[in-house]
Each structure stands twice: as structure tokens, then as C-alpha cells.
Design a protein around this nucleic acid. Structure first.
Lengths: 144, 144
DNA sequence: ATAATTGCAAAGCGTTTGCACCCTG
DNA sequence: CAGGGTGCAAACGCTTTGCAATTAT
């Protein structure tokens, strides 16, 4: 799912102008196995002494999500998270303990959903599934 | 799914103190077939000349969601919607045109999801499915 | 009676925007 | 070199909180 690609390449593929800041944001996402908020990305870049404005992080993330480069996740109200994802349709399995995110491929819901939509007179255009649980490590930690 | 119940009853069932304001908020939700934001509920109550504070609406909705009386939906980033739902597990089918919401019963995902979780060493505790589409009316309107 | 609930206004938070400057293509 | 991109700080909108007055049990 998560094909390793360079930040440069990701931008070029979509015909997005490459700037130092956009590359930095993408690098931060590439280095982040889970999801991150705009603020988190901003802070991690500032810690690395990268000169970037918070507004630019927001603008870049908006741009990237418009182009389908990053996914937008909303597990908690008022918290928007971004994540660099593999191409194609997939869903997410999130650990409630440590917030690690696992991509779920092979979604088998399409047929079920479109039939369900038909019953209600809907044409189903998209669907999102967010699965929450506890990873093995967190479960162990919680037990003690 | 959506058993009609009185606002009074809903509060009493959970042992929530009944106040004029809480009943008004619940009535607004009972009258609302779809979902509504805190602000929308506040405004609809003010239009009806109900004296209620915005803060109370927020506090009441938080209370009701804690007690499982209302569902919290987040289709769009930065927009938290509340909805009075039937009991039991279900999901939502939302029209992107008119925002009407249909409750989907009989969710057949449980077995699939827990097996999927197992593969990744997760104990799946919950899942949310949000299906989006176009209802018949909006599809017609869009075609013209 | 007394503890919880309310309303208001102020504070808080994440996010967006206006504008002068800067950089990419 | 032109048009898009950036940074800063101010503006923004939604939500939460402090506190005195009010209300339910």
C-alpha cells in the first residue's frame, strides 16, 4: 500500500509547483508512520530548525488533500489529522491507546453498500470506514 | 430504528436531571429528521422564542452524547453534528446534496472487521461507517 | 435546603485571510 | 519576469469556561 516515493516526485506527479516548504511538509508526512495534525507537523518542522509558517502548513495540507496526496482523518471532534497514504481505496484501523494507524486494503464493502444505497434510492458515491481498537502492545499495557 | 419517545422519557431513562432547556434541545432534535450542529439547534430554539444560552446547548449536547442519547457525526472537517438516533448499532447514509440522513440498520461488518483486526494484532472495539451518496431527488435536480 | 444548572461575557483554540515580500518556472 | 507562494499578524468562528444568579429535587 505505502509505496515509498520522494517528496519531489509526489509533487511533480500531480503538477504541483515544488517549493522548499511543500517538500518539507511532505517529508514530515513521509517520516510520520501515523497521522498528524497541521500543528504537529508545524512543530516538528520548527524543531528541526526549518523556517516555515503555520499558515503555509495549513495551505499546503489543503492543497495536498485536494490533489489526493494526503488523506484527511477525523477520529475526534475538532481534530483534523492528515496522513500520507498509499494510492487506491482503503480504510484505517486506529489504536485508541497509541494512535498508530494501520491501512486496511482490500475493502469488501462496495457491493454491500451500493445495494444498501439502492434500497433507499441513493446512488452511493463514497464511503469511509474508521475502525478503532487496541493494538497488542497497548492491550498489554492496559492490563497491567 | 427511530422509536418515537418523549423528551421527558429520554432524560428520565438515563437518570438525567430534567430542565426546561434540556427538554427544548431534545425536542429540537426530535423535530429534526437529519443532523444538526449546536449552533443550528441554538438558532432554531431562539427563533421559537425559547430562552436558552448557546453554552447550555453545547453542555446539553455533550451530556446527551455521553449518555448515548445522541450520536456525534463528523462528515466534514470542523463541523460536528448531533443526531437523535435509534438505539443499537447502526450507521449513516448521507445525501451530499440535501444532507438528509438515513439510518442503516443490520450492520454486517462485525465479523469481517474483527477478523481483520486480528490479522494486525488489534482487538477491535468500535467502528464507524459513513456512506455518502445522492438521494433520488438530488440526483434528478443535478441532472437538470 | 442544597447541589446542580443556567446565562452571559470573556477567554481559548485551531484555522483562515490580507498583504507586502520572495521565489519558482 | 510574472504569477504563484510565503510569512506574519490580525481576524475569524466555534467551543469552552468562570462566576453569580437561578432552579430542580
Amino acid at each position: 500500500m505505502r509505496v515509498p516515493r520522494s517528496a519531489q516526485q509526489l509533487l511533480a506527479e500531480r503538477g504541483i509547483r515544488t517549493t522548499r516548504q511543500r517538500i518539507r511538509v511532505l517529508e514530515a508526512l513521509l517520516a510520520e508512520p501515523n497521522d498528524a495534525t497541521a500543528q504537529e507537523i508545524y512543530e516538528s518542522l520548527r524543531k528541526r530548525r526549518d523556517r516555515i509558517g503555520l499558515a503555509t502548513v495549513y495551505r499546503t495540507l489543503a492543497l495536498l488533500s485536494e490533489h489526493g496526496v494526503v488523506d484527511v482523518l477525523m477520529h475526534h471532534p475538532g481534530e483534523v489529522c492528515y496522513r500520507l497514504c498509499g494510492q487506491g481505496h482503503h480504510h484505517h484501523l486506529t489504536c485508541t491507546g497509541c494512535h498508530q494507524v494501520v491501512e486496511l486494503g482490500d475493502c469488501e464493502l462496495e457491493p454491500w453498500l451500493s445495494s444498501l444505497g439502492g434500497v433507499h434510492g441513493f446512488t452511493v458515491t463514497s464511503h469511509a470506514v474508521e475502525v478503532a481498537g487496541m493494538c497488542a502492545d497497548c492491550e498489554k499495557a492496559a492490563a497491567s
